[in-house]
Amino acid sequence: MIATTRHLADGREIVYFDSVPTPREAVDPRDLPPVATRSQVRWDPLLGEWVVIAAHRQTRTFLPPADQCPLCASTPARATEVPEADYEVAVFENRFPSLSTEVDRDVPAHAEGNPLVALRPGEGRCEVIVFTSNHDRSFADLGAERARLVVDAWAHRTEALSALPGVEQVFLFENHGEEIGVTLAHPHGQVYAYPFLAPRVQKILGQVATYEGDLFADVLAAERSGPRVVAANEHWTAFVPAAARWPYELQLFPHRRVPDVATLTDAERDAFVEVYLDVLGRFAHRFDEPMNYISSWNQAPVHAGREQWWLHLQLFSFQRAPGKLKYLAGSESGMGAFVSDTSPEGAADALRAVVVP
Rank of each mutant, 00 (worst) to 15 (best):
P290V: 00
N292H: 13
S343M: 12
G11N: 07
N298P: 00
F338I: 13
E84Q: 09
P65N: 06
S19I: 04
E127M: 04
A147H: 01
L252A: 04
T210N: 07
E127L: 14
L149D: 12
L142T: 02
R38E: 14
A350Q: 13
R245F: 06
H303V: 07
W43T: 09
I180P: 01
R245W: 11
R78Q: 14
A185N: 11
T61F: 05
E178W: 09
T101H: 10
L161T: 05
T132A: 00
F316A: 11
S39T: 05
H188Y: 10
R12Q: 11
V107G: 05
E212Q: 14
E307Y: 08
R224N: 12
W154K: 14
S343W: 13
L264D: 00
G213F: 03
I129W: 07
T4F: 01
W310A: 10
Q314R: 11
E268R: 02
F131L: 12
D44F: 07
A140K: 01
G206D: 08
R282E: 00
H110R: 00
T342C: 11
R352G: 09
G323F: 03
E25P: 01
A147Y: 00
L99K: 06
A232E: 15
C69Q: 04
D18V: 01
G323T: 04
H235T: 03
L164K: 05
A90K: 01
L315Q: 00
N298A: 14
Y276D: 12
H188C: 09
W246Q: 06
T342W: 01
Q299A: 14
A217T: 11
A77V: 02
K203S: 15
L215W: 10
V170I: 06
W310E: 07
L250S: 04
Q40S: 05
P23G: 02
G166S: 07
T210I: 13
V240K: 05
H188F: 10
A90Y: 03
P187I: 03
D349A: 15
V230T: 04
N94M: 05
A9W: 10
P259T: 02
P254M: 00
H186W: 04
